[in-house]
């Protein structure tokens, strides 16, 4: 039962107020894309033990989607940020690197 802070309304939300949206920062491939590109968009999902970036919706709150970086093993939350981001913010990456020196970084 996680808690995540919604970056839009500021509520430290109980997991029961949220709905999950799985992996963040997927790049959409539409018509004209190769089968490999479409597969990467549609099916290939990361499943790391450690740092992971996810989509969450504050479904019972302000209704906004946001993104979260957390450790899937310890459940430590490194931060949340708006969904209107094509990559994790630099300061968040730096914070994670500091806490997880062995982390291979965001790819």
């Amino acid at each position: 039962m996680l808690t995540l802070q919604c970056p839009y309304c500021g509520v430290q939300a109980d997991e029961t107020e949220l709905s999950p949206g799985y992996e963040a920062h997927l790049k959409r491939f539409g018509p004209g894309s190769t089968p490999e590109e479409f597969e990467s968009y549609m099916f290939a999902r990361k499943n790391p033990k450690g740092v992971h970036f996810e989509r969450w919706r504050h479904a019972y709150g302000c209704g906004k989607w946001f993104l979260a970086a957390r450790d899937t093993n310890t459940l430590e939350v490194f931060g949340t940020y708006p969904a209107q981001s094509s990559a994790p913010p630099a300061d968040l990456i730096a914070k994670i690197k500091q806490k997880r020196p062995d982390w291979e970084g965001y790819k």
Partner: peptide, 13 residues
């Protein structure tokens, strides 16, 4: 409605 908001918020913002 959630599907619409998802695309509007996360892809075509």
């Amino acid at each position: 409605h959630g599907w619409m908001e998802d695309w509007l918020q996360c892809e075509w913002w």
